[in-house]
């Protein structure tokens, strides 16, 4: 999805926000969404003093003054929202990331999975499609599971084959969904590898799927916190950094945005 967040000069108040589905022409979609948000907020383009684009499409957004990676933007947003956080798990539709934060709230290091759909929201989409369930219903369905199925394959394509086999064996759909959530959480745990420090914050669209939070907590053995609107945090971080850069770029000079 494409998301936009506008923050006020004080960097605290969110003036407007919105999101829309992705498409091939990201620039056109972003420009259109931007116009809609400005209109809803009663603002003119000239009143927006700086735009930062983030995410994989960041270089294609013509209205952006600056581009910053989503790793940095996530860290900035989470430090603002939950300053005590030390790890961010971000699971989006196409990739997943684990960002380790230093005590300063800045990124210490990160790992990313962007080569494989396992451990991403795409895995859930494939499962929902195969089970004939809406994505939003996956969580409630998984919550009714008494015995999550074991999904042994870490490849989405092969996992889909496993799911077909489980359905043929009359395993309840809720057990399959719960099993897939567990598989994603275990994949994230495997990605983390090194010691994970809490508090752990869970962001990205997949954080909105009920059941994923507890699946992650079980896999990691740590409490996992989901901020409000977890799918918007990178955009929020980009907005904070836009305001920071406008005022002198303190973040990249070691200060707080």
């Amino acid at each position: 999805m494409i998301k936009i967040v506008l923050v006020a000069d004080d960097g605290m108040q969110v003036i407007a926000k919105g999101c829309t589905d992705q498409g091939i022409d990201q620039d056109r979609i972003a420009t259109s969404l931007f116009a809609t948000i400005l209109s809803q907020a009663g603002l003119r383009r000239s009143q927006v003093r700086r735009v930062v684009a983030t995410g994989y499409g960041r270089a294609r957004i013509s209205l952006a003054d600056t581009t910053i990676t989503e790793i940095t933007c996530q860290a900035v947003a989470i430090h603002r929202l939950l300053p005590e956080a030390r790890t961010v798990i971000d699971i989006g539709g196409q990739d997943s990331k684990i960002i380790r934060l230093a005590d300063s709230g800045r990124v210490f290091d990160f790992v990313m999975n962007d080569r494989c759909a396992a451990g991403t929201g795409r895995f859930l989409e494939v499962v929902a499609d195969r089970l004939g369930v809406d994505l939003v219903d996956l969580g409630p369905l998984a919550a009714t599971s008494r015995e999550p199925a074991v999904i042994s394959s870490m490849c989405v394509v092969f996992a889909e084959t496993e799911i077909i086999g489980l359905l043929a064996a009359n395993r309840p759909r809720e057990d399959i969904v719960a099993g897939v959530q567990r598989a994603i959480a275990q994949r994230i745990h495997g990605m983390a590898g090194r010691t994970m420090r809490g508090p752990v914050v869970f962001t990205g669209g997949v954080a909105l799927v009920a059941g994923m939070q507890s699946a992650l907590e079980d896999a990691l053995g740590l409490q996992v916190v989901i901020p409000q609107e977890p799918h918007m945090t990178a955009a929020f971080g980009a907005a904070i950094l836009a305001r920071d850069i406008q005022q002198g770029g303190h973040y990249f000079l070691g200060g707080q945005p």
Partner: peptide, 13 residues
């Protein structure tokens, strides 16, 4: 993205 994120991380730290 990874390399730029690394550069941002180092610069901000």
């Amino acid at each position: 993205t990874r390399l730029q994120a690394l550069v941002e991380t180092i610069r901000s730290n």
